[in-house]
Computed example of a mutant assay.
Amino acid sequence: MTPGPRHAVRAIILDEDDRILLCRFVPPHPAVPEQATAVWAAPGGGIEPGEDRLTALRRELHEETGLVITADPPHVWHQHVMAADHPPGVGSIINDYFLIRATHFQPRGELGDDHLATQESLAGFRWWHLAEIADHTGSDLFSPRELTTPLTALITTGAPARPVRLGL
Protein backbone atom coordinates (compact mmCIF):
# COMPACT_ATOMS: atom_id res chain seq x y z
CA MET A 1 0.00 0.00 0.00
CA THR A 2 1.41 3.39 -1.03
CA PRO A 3 1.24 6.07 1.68
CA GLY A 4 -0.88 9.03 0.64
CA PRO A 5 -0.49 12.65 1.59
CA ARG A 6 -0.26 13.67 5.25
CA HIS A 7 -3.29 15.73 6.27
CA ALA A 8 -2.70 18.59 8.71
CA VAL A 9 -4.54 21.57 10.17
CA ARG A 10 -3.08 24.98 10.97
CA ALA A 11 -4.38 28.10 12.70
CA ILE A 12 -3.92 31.62 11.43
CA ILE A 13 -4.07 33.28 14.85
CA LEU A 14 -4.39 37.05 14.59
CA ASP A 15 -4.36 39.30 17.64
CA GLU A 16 -6.09 42.66 18.08
CA ASP A 17 -3.18 44.42 16.27
CA ASP A 18 -3.34 42.00 13.30
CA ARG A 19 -0.12 40.29 14.35
CA ILE A 20 0.10 36.62 13.40
CA LEU A 21 1.45 33.97 15.75
CA LEU A 22 4.00 31.71 14.06
CA CYS A 23 6.06 28.75 15.27
CA ARG A 24 9.72 28.36 14.38
CA PHE A 25 10.43 24.80 13.28
CA VAL A 26 14.02 23.57 12.92
CA PRO A 27 15.50 20.41 11.36
CA PRO A 28 14.67 17.56 11.41
CA HIS A 29 11.05 18.79 11.09
CA PRO A 30 9.52 17.73 7.71
CA ALA A 31 8.50 21.33 6.91
CA VAL A 32 12.15 22.46 6.93
CA PRO A 33 13.91 21.90 3.58
CA GLU A 34 17.58 20.84 3.61
CA GLN A 35 18.90 24.28 2.63
CA ALA A 36 16.92 26.16 5.32
CA THR A 37 17.89 26.84 8.92
CA ALA A 38 14.24 27.02 10.02
CA VAL A 39 10.68 27.60 8.83
CA TRP A 40 8.13 29.92 10.46
CA ALA A 41 4.68 28.36 10.14
CA ALA A 42 1.23 28.61 11.67
CA PRO A 43 0.68 26.41 14.72
CA GLY A 44 -1.00 23.10 14.09
CA GLY A 45 -0.16 19.61 12.97
CA GLY A 46 -1.29 16.26 11.71
CA ILE A 47 -4.80 14.87 11.92
CA GLU A 48 -4.76 11.65 13.92
CA PRO A 49 -6.86 8.60 12.94
CA GLY A 50 -10.49 9.08 13.96
CA GLU A 51 -10.19 12.89 14.24
CA ASP A 52 -11.97 15.43 12.08
CA ARG A 53 -10.16 18.64 11.13
CA LEU A 54 -11.62 20.82 13.90
CA THR A 55 -10.97 18.24 16.63
CA ALA A 56 -7.36 17.99 15.45
CA LEU A 57 -7.05 21.79 15.34
CA ARG A 58 -8.33 22.14 18.92
CA ARG A 59 -5.94 19.43 20.15
CA GLU A 60 -2.91 20.83 18.32
CA LEU A 61 -3.53 24.40 19.50
CA HIS A 62 -3.92 23.32 23.10
CA GLU A 63 -0.78 21.16 22.93
CA GLU A 64 1.40 23.77 21.21
CA THR A 65 0.12 27.15 22.39
CA GLY A 66 -2.25 26.53 25.30
CA LEU A 67 -5.05 28.26 23.36
CA VAL A 68 -8.49 26.74 23.84
CA ILE A 69 -11.10 27.42 21.17
CA THR A 70 -14.77 26.55 21.42
CA ALA A 71 -16.29 28.11 18.30
CA ASP A 72 -15.75 26.60 14.85
CA PRO A 73 -13.33 28.95 13.05
CA PRO A 74 -13.69 29.63 9.32
CA HIS A 75 -11.65 27.50 6.90
CA VAL A 76 -9.66 30.11 4.96
CA TRP A 77 -6.80 28.43 3.06
CA HIS A 78 -6.03 25.04 1.52
CA GLN A 79 -2.48 24.03 0.58
CA HIS A 80 -1.14 20.89 -1.07
CA VAL A 81 2.64 20.70 -0.84
CA MET A 82 4.21 17.95 -2.91
CA ALA A 83 7.74 16.71 -2.32
CA ALA A 84 9.81 17.28 -5.46
CA ASP A 85 11.65 13.95 -5.23
CA HIS A 86 8.58 11.73 -4.63
CA PRO A 87 5.83 10.40 -6.92
CA PRO A 88 2.55 12.38 -6.86
CA GLY A 89 0.74 12.05 -3.54
CA VAL A 90 3.64 10.28 -1.78
CA GLY A 91 5.45 12.39 0.78
CA SER A 92 3.09 15.31 0.27
CA ILE A 93 1.27 17.36 2.89
CA ILE A 94 -2.22 18.82 2.71
CA ASN A 95 -2.63 21.78 5.08
CA ASP A 96 -6.02 23.26 5.87
CA TYR A 97 -5.83 26.66 7.59
CA PHE A 98 -8.45 28.16 9.90
CA LEU A 99 -8.73 31.80 11.03
CA ILE A 100 -8.76 32.51 14.76
CA ARG A 101 -9.01 35.98 16.25
CA ALA A 102 -7.57 36.09 19.76
CA THR A 103 -6.43 38.57 22.34
CA HIS A 104 -2.64 38.73 22.43
CA PHE A 105 -1.23 35.98 24.68
CA GLN A 106 2.05 34.28 25.53
CA PRO A 107 2.00 30.79 23.99
CA ARG A 108 2.46 28.10 26.60
CA GLY A 109 1.47 24.66 25.37
CA GLU A 110 0.22 21.84 27.54
CA LEU A 111 3.07 19.59 26.38
CA GLY A 112 5.77 21.98 27.63
CA ASP A 113 8.62 23.68 25.80
CA ASP A 114 11.12 20.83 26.27
CA HIS A 115 8.75 18.23 24.81
CA LEU A 116 7.87 20.46 21.85
CA ALA A 117 11.54 21.14 21.15
CA THR A 118 12.62 17.49 21.24
CA GLN A 119 9.55 15.78 19.76
CA GLU A 120 8.20 18.42 17.39
CA SER A 121 11.37 20.40 16.49
CA LEU A 122 9.51 23.52 17.62
CA ALA A 123 12.12 26.12 18.59
CA GLY A 124 9.84 28.96 19.66
CA PHE A 125 6.98 31.31 18.91
CA ARG A 126 6.80 34.88 17.70
CA TRP A 127 4.06 37.38 16.95
CA TRP A 128 4.77 39.00 13.56
CA HIS A 129 3.42 42.16 11.95
CA LEU A 130 2.74 41.77 8.22
CA ALA A 131 5.46 44.33 7.39
CA GLU A 132 8.04 42.33 9.39
CA ILE A 133 7.30 39.24 7.32
CA ALA A 134 7.45 41.23 4.06
CA ASP A 135 10.78 42.84 5.05
CA HIS A 136 12.40 39.67 6.45
CA THR A 137 15.87 39.06 4.99
CA GLY A 138 17.16 36.27 7.24
CA SER A 139 17.82 32.67 6.22
CA ASP A 140 14.62 31.37 7.83
CA LEU A 141 11.74 30.64 5.45
CA PHE A 142 7.99 31.08 5.88
CA SER A 143 5.26 28.57 5.12
CA PRO A 144 3.59 29.23 2.81
CA ARG A 145 6.58 30.91 1.11
CA GLU A 146 4.43 33.80 -0.14
CA LEU A 147 2.68 34.27 3.19
CA THR A 148 2.31 38.04 2.78
CA THR A 149 -0.12 37.85 -0.16
CA PRO A 150 -2.85 35.65 1.37
CA LEU A 151 -2.29 37.19 4.82
CA THR A 152 -2.80 40.70 3.43
CA ALA A 153 -6.08 39.61 1.83
CA LEU A 154 -7.20 37.93 5.05
CA ILE A 155 -6.47 41.01 7.16
CA THR A 156 -8.02 43.51 4.73
CA THR A 157 -11.10 41.60 3.55
CA GLY A 158 -11.67 38.93 6.20
CA ALA A 159 -12.42 35.25 5.74
CA PRO A 160 -13.17 34.22 2.15
CA ALA A 161 -16.43 32.47 1.26
CA ARG A 162 -14.39 29.42 0.18
CA PRO A 163 -10.84 28.41 1.15
CA VAL A 164 -8.16 30.01 -1.00
CA ARG A 165 -5.76 27.53 -2.62
CA LEU A 166 -2.15 28.24 -1.75
CA GLY A 167 1.13 27.22 -3.35
CA LEU A 168 4.29 26.07 -1.60
Rank of each mutant, 00 (worst) to 15 (best):
E16M: 12
T152V: 03
I12P: 02
H75R: 04
G138M: 11
I12A: 15
L61R: 02
P107H: 09
L57N: 14
F98E: 08
I100D: 06
A131S: 10
L141N: 04
P73Y: 09
P87S: 04
R24V: 12
G124D: 08
G66V: 02
V39S: 01
E110G: 14
G167T: 14
G158R: 07
E63L: 10
W77F: 12
L154E: 01
H62G: 03
G124A: 11
T37E: 13
I69C: 03
L116P: 00
S121A: 13
V76F: 03
A161Q: 13
V26P: 06
I93Y: 05
A84G: 15
P3H: 14
A161D: 14
R162E: 12
I69K: 05
D140S: 01
P43F: 04
S143A: 15
A84L: 15
P3F: 05
L54Q: 07
G50P: 05
L111C: 13
R145F: 05
L151Y: 04
F142D: 00
R145W: 06
T118E: 15
D113L: 11
L99T: 07
R19L: 12
W127F: 03
L147I: 09
F25G: 11
A71Y: 10
A159V: 07
S143Y: 07
R126S: 02
L14K: 01
L57T: 13
L61W: 03
D52K: 10
G167Q: 14
L168R: 10
G45V: 04
P107E: 03
S139I: 01
T55D: 07
L54F: 15
L54P: 05
L122V: 09
V32Q: 05
L154T: 02
P87T: 05
H62F: 15
G44R: 00
H7V: 13
E48M: 13
M82K: 12
A71C: 08
I13L: 14
G46M: 06
T149P: 00
A131H: 08
V76M: 00
A123L: 05
E51L: 00
Q119T: 06
I100N: 07
P88E: 05
H129R: 15
T149Q: 13
A38Y: 00
I94P: 01
D15W: 08
R6F: 14
P5E: 15
Q106Y: 15
T152C: 09
A41F: 00
D17E: 14
H80D: 09
L168H: 12
A84P: 09
A161H: 14
P87M: 07
L22R: 06
F105D: 07
A71S: 15
I69N: 00
H129T: 10
H78R: 14
P30M: 04
L22S: 08
D85Q: 12
T148F: 02
T37K: 07
D96W: 06
L99M: 14
A159Q: 08
Q35F: 09
P3D: 09
